[in-house]
Structure formats: C-alpha cells, structure tokens
C-alpha cells in the first residue's frame, strides 16, 4: 500500500497501550499470521534441526528460536501458538518422533511466551532503543531457554527413556546454548531491523490477541 508509514515517533509506552478511541479486535489477519509464522518457523527451525543436530530435535544452534521469540514479541499469543506448533513440523522433517515433538510443546510455548510477556509487562521497546530494552530481551531469552533446556531433556527425553541420567547435562547445555546463541544472533537483529515497520502494521498485537 502506498505511503502507509511515516517517521512519526512512537514511545515504548504508546507501542503497547491502546490510544484513545483505538479499537483492536481479532480478525482474519491474525489467523493468516499464525499460519505464516508456522510456515516460516517450519523452514527456519528445520534448517537448525538438520544443520546442527544433537539428537531428538535438540540442536547446537537452533534458528527456530528467532521465530518463536521475535514472533511472540510482535504478535503476542499468535506468536506463542505458532511457536508451540511449528517445531512439530520442523522436528518431523528432521526425524524426531511424533510423540517426542508433542511432548516438547510446553517448553516451546514458554520460550515464546516469556519474552513476549516481559516486553509487554515492562513496556520495553521492540525497536530496542535503550540498554534496558536489550537487557529485558536478554534476560527473557536466558530464563525462557533455561526452562526449555531443563524441561525437555529432563521430562521428555528422560521420560521417553531416550537418555541416561548422566547424559542429561549434555542435552540441557545443548538446548540452552543452542537457543541462547541463536537468539543472540537473530533476535536482536530482527527486532532492530523490522520492529519499526511491524509495530505500524495491522498485524501487530498490542495486548495478547489483537
């Protein structure tokens, strides 16, 4: 569409808060967004799963984390939903059994939810304008990946009998490092490069659903 955006500056508060008279509701665009995020996560996640595998969908450098965390920061619950669903597809392509992928859902959901929640709760600017924004993102990435890293090898892989107790730390560090390193590489750049545009589009989600 022609000339839809200009350089009018929005503050971090304004980004997350509804303006007087502003109406936002769930619409077809969010359904489309969910599908596209699953699609892009599928491809990007599969790239990580195939290129840097540790096994059972755990990777040394998992690019899918960028879609999970950036997607949820921009698109709220739709990003969290997509983050929970797409590893299912990307893991399938890389040979992870169906039910193992299914059991990863809580880890993937939390990994996406926490940064999205932190940005909304602390009113951080997704364009990463200040050190505070960077720190909030980094902290959310670390905490959420730590949860994923503890949950998945301990609950899922151990639960399915795929790992011995002694090899669990390798997978915990693999999951954690694979997510945090890839997150540092991609999340900062994606947020910095595209947030300025995304926050002005109708698909951007201020609260959780719209």
């Amino acid at each position: 569409m022609e000339n839809q955006l200009n350089q009018e500056e929005l503050t971090a508060e304004q980004i997350w808060e509804l303006q007087p008279g502003e109406k936002r509701s769930v619409g077809v665009i969010h359904i489309v967004l969910l599908a596209l995020l699953i699609g892009i996560g599928f491809v990007v996640g599969a790239f990580g799963s195939i290129s840097f595998p540790l096994g059972f969908g755990v990777n040394f450098f998992w690019t899918g984390i960028a879609v999970q965390q950036v997607g949820a920061i921009w698109f709220g619950a739709w990003g969290v939903l997509a983050a929970s669903i797409f590893p299912f597809f990307s893991n399938a392509i890389s040979g992870t059994p169906f039910y193992v992928s299914l059991a990863y859902i809580p880890a993937n959901a939390v990994q996406a939810f926490l940064p999205a929640w932190a940005f909304r709760y602390y009113k951080a600017d997704p364009r990463l304008k200040s050190t505070r924004d960077y720190l909030i993102l980094l902290a959310a990435m670390i905490v959420s990946s730590a949860f994923g890293a503890l949950y998945s090898p301990l609950v899922v892989l151990k639960g399915f009998g795929l790992l011995t107790a002694e090899s669990v730390p390798l997978f915990i560090w693999g999951w954690f490092g694979g997510n945090v390193v890839a997150g540092i590489v991609f999340n900062f750049i994606l947020l910095k490069a595209l947030s300025g545009v995304v926050i002005r589009t109708p698909s951007f989600v201020k609260k959780w659903w719209a």
């Binding site: 599908a35 699953i38 699609g39 892009i40 599928f42 491809v43 669903i85 797409f86 597809f89």
Partner: peptide, 9 residues
C-alpha cells in the same frame, strides 16, 4: 496455509 507458506518461504 502453514504448509503453503513453508513452500513460499
């Protein structure tokens, strides 16, 4: 649509 968008990506 997710499958379709994966192809597009």
């Amino acid at each position: 649509m997710a499958l379709r968008s994966a192809g597009m990506v």
